[in-house]
Design a protein around this nucleic acid. Structure first.
Length: 592
RNA sequence: GGUGGCAUAGCUCAGCUGGAUAGAGCACCUGCCUUCUAAGCAGGCGGUCCUAGGUUCGAAUCCUAGUGCCAUCACCA
């Protein structure tokens, strides 16, 4: 039983004995640093059943607790706060209960719990990945790992948007202007090459619009009648009809893009258990809609289009099937969700990592699935995150105002190299080791920078201002890890024994307390789908550790038992740093 | 206009189910490398927690109204 439960029992009993009233909750909080004590009981809520002065009640309770609870050695009362001071033995016991654990804080997959499928990335195959995708990928990957660590099996997936008018646009531009260019001939990454033609299409299309407008058409007319657009639409029809030439080109260009994406994913350190392709799923869902129409979940309008009426839920009517019987995005998403549960019957819930511009779409999707009566429909979550904007505003691929993912990753590595070379601490490292390290640090800086922010908040990214490597940053935490590794390398004595008879230093206690919070932090982060909670926890841990590190000697400590304990404490701290960063998708270096 | 999100130090952000004097980092200023890695530590400066009401012993946190920014409301994705 943990100390909080023990205290709750004792307090309940104490209040019964002293005041002859019963209470059912006790409010605890960690004692603030500027007060003496370890755990605090808030007395105010008791005033509802006990009339009296909170300080007096606090004193009586404090005395009762110190008498009954062996781990409590003293107390003080400030206003209505009863601060309880615990014995060092309590902290040491707790430490040795977690010290030997391999994956402290991680819950083993619970066989009773249903698995979760997390979708993230889900790119279009007509342009390269940019900073917005990076946020998506980092969030999706990390949330997957966090849920896993919280005790559920997780499948990572993406749906690749490999068909549609936008794909035809780059295909058409390539056909017209490509002159047989390939990634090999141009030495371009495949996704970059294809992206160039997407931009090219837009440029040529705009020219056509202008010339049509010069001939007297309105802007709207010109946009609809531009020959390039008509041709792209025609291409889409041919694709849907299975036209060999179009499909061959589509396959070729998509493969280029996949190869390019694969490189970027690898560089980012993300992966997937299962890929879905829109070209396979876009027709799914139609049967379900027909079914739902029979059941009366949907209704048909005179023109044959099928809708759902969500006005009762405060939303609008939403189309689920066009009048010509073709599927819209929603149709597909309904079908894909059902398909996923079919493919993975152990999955009991889905998480969609998609930007907050699609909040409405997912609200509707979830409602529809619920109305269709799927029992898992209550376990759908839209991991909605804020946009990554530039000082100039939104990133737009067609206008070239994007921060390219590959470029950014390279920049981060370069910065890491420059800083490392300046500091010059890598004597004895081979060039290959250094290269790996620069990547670890650069990537760590970027990932931490993005993940430490609450997902729902938008991020303003200024390419001119470099991402920090000092303060509340990834490299700072990695650095602390590396410092501890250095200590462990130098600790050339046995430090396996259990230490019992030492007086804990205040700084040691602070580190211990923070370590103890790791398991509940993982659960909290999983419940909130928030890597930011893990990031902030880790930062707090590292701050406490550094303060300890710098104010008392570890290896230089003359007293053997204390020295052993300090090494053990350091070791455990580094393990937790590593675990926490692992679920953020960030690596830690042995030296830096 | 309807709906949703966000608003905390000059800048970037924490602040768990309401609790003590609202916390970090960056920037600026002071100290600390002949002792375990100074990508660090210790300290200083800096706040009408958007505004106005309300609930409460107690509100940055909950409720209402307003303001600002963003998103969304298509037989688009």
């Amino acid at each position: 039983m943990n100390i909080q439960e023990t205290l709750k029992e004792v307090i309940t009993k104490g209040i019964q004995e002293i005041y002859n009233v019963s209470i059912n909750t006790v409010e605890f909080q960690a004692t603030r640093k500027d007060f003496d004590g370890d755990i605090t009981v808030v007395v105010f809520p008791f005033l509802k059943v006990i009339k009296g002065n909170p300080v007096e009640i606090g004193n009586k309770l404090g005395a009762y607790i110190t008498e009954k609870v062996t781990d409590a050695k003293g107390f003080n009362v400030v206003k209505g706060f009863l601060n309880i001071i615990l014995n060092d033995g309590y902290f040491l016991n707790h430490f040795y209960s977690i010290y030997p654990l391999q994956n402290f804080g991680f819950e083993k997959p619970n066989p009773i719990e249903k698995s979760v499928m997390v979708e993230y990335s889900s790119p279009n195959t007509n342009k390269p990945l940019h900073l917005g995708h990076i946020r998506n990928n980092l969030l999706g990957y990390s949330v997957s790992e966090i849920i896993k660590a919280s005790g559920k099996k997780v499948y990572k997936t993406q749906i690749i948007n490999d068909r549609g008018i936008h794909i035809c646009k780059s295909m058409l531009a390539y056909k017209k202007f490509g002159q047989g260019e390939t990634p090999e001939s141009s030495h371009l990454k495949g996704d970059k090459l294809v992206g160039n033609y997407y931009v090219k299409f837009d440029q040529e299309y705009k020219k056509e619009i202008l010339s049509l407008m010069a001939k007297g058409l309105s802007e709207d007319q010109a946009k609809k009648q531009a020959p390039l657009l008509l041709e792209a639409q025609e291409m889409l029809q041919k694709w849907e009809a299975g036209d060999t030439t179009v499909v061959t080109l589509w396959k070729t260009m998509n493969q280029w893009v996949y190869d390019g994406f694969e490189q970027t994913y690898k560089a980012l350190g993300v992966n997937f258990d299962k890929n879905y392709y829109e070209s396979n799923t876009y027709l799914l869902g139609k049967d379900v809609v027909a079914d739902g129409l029979q059941k009366g979940v949907f209704f048909k309008k005179d023109d044959g289009s099928v809708w759902i009426d969500l006005t009762d839920e405060g939303l609008d009517e939403k189309i689920v099937l066009r009048s010509d019987g073709t599927a819209v995005y929603m149709t597909q998403d309904i079908g894909t969700a059902i398909q996923r549960i079919k493919d993975y019957p152990d999955v009991g819930g889905l998480v969609y990592t998609v930007g907050n511009e699609q909040d409405y779409h997912f609200k509707v999707l979830f409602l529809i699935l619920k109305k269709l009566g799927f029992e898992w429909a209550g376990n759908l979550y839209h991991l909605s995150y804020g946009m990554v904007d530039l000082p100039s505003g939104k990133m737009k691929s067609r206008e070239g105002t994007v921060v390219d993912a590959d470029d950014l990753l390279l920049d981060m590595t370069t910065t890491a190299r420059e800083i490392s070379e300046d500091l010059g601490k890598l004597e004895g490292y081979t060039d290959a080791e250094k290269k790996t390290l620069y990547k670890t640090i650069g990537l760590g800086a970027l990932k931490y920078h993005i993940l430490k922010v609450d997902p729902k908040k938008r991020i303003l990214f200024d390419p001119k201002e470099s991402i920090d490597f000092n303060g509340n940053t990834g490299p700072f935490i990695q650095y602390t890890y590396a410092r501890i590794q250095s200590i462990l390398r130098k600790a050339d004595f046995e430090y396996d024994s259990t230490v019992v008879s030492i007086n804990l230093h205040e700084k040691e206690k602070l580190v211990l307390k923070q370590l103890a919070l790791f398991p509940e932090t993982i659960q909290l982060a999983a419940e909130n789908y928030s890597p930011a909670i893990i990031a902030n926890y880790t930062y707090d841990l590292v701050k406490e550790y550094n303060s300890f590190y710098q104010s008392i000697p570890i290896l230089g400590c003359g007293q053997l038992e204390e020295k052993i304990f300090r090494v053990q404490l350091s070791k455990k701290t580094s393990e937790v740093i590593k675990s926490a960063f692992q679920i953020l998708g960030i690596e830690v270096p042995e030296r830096m």
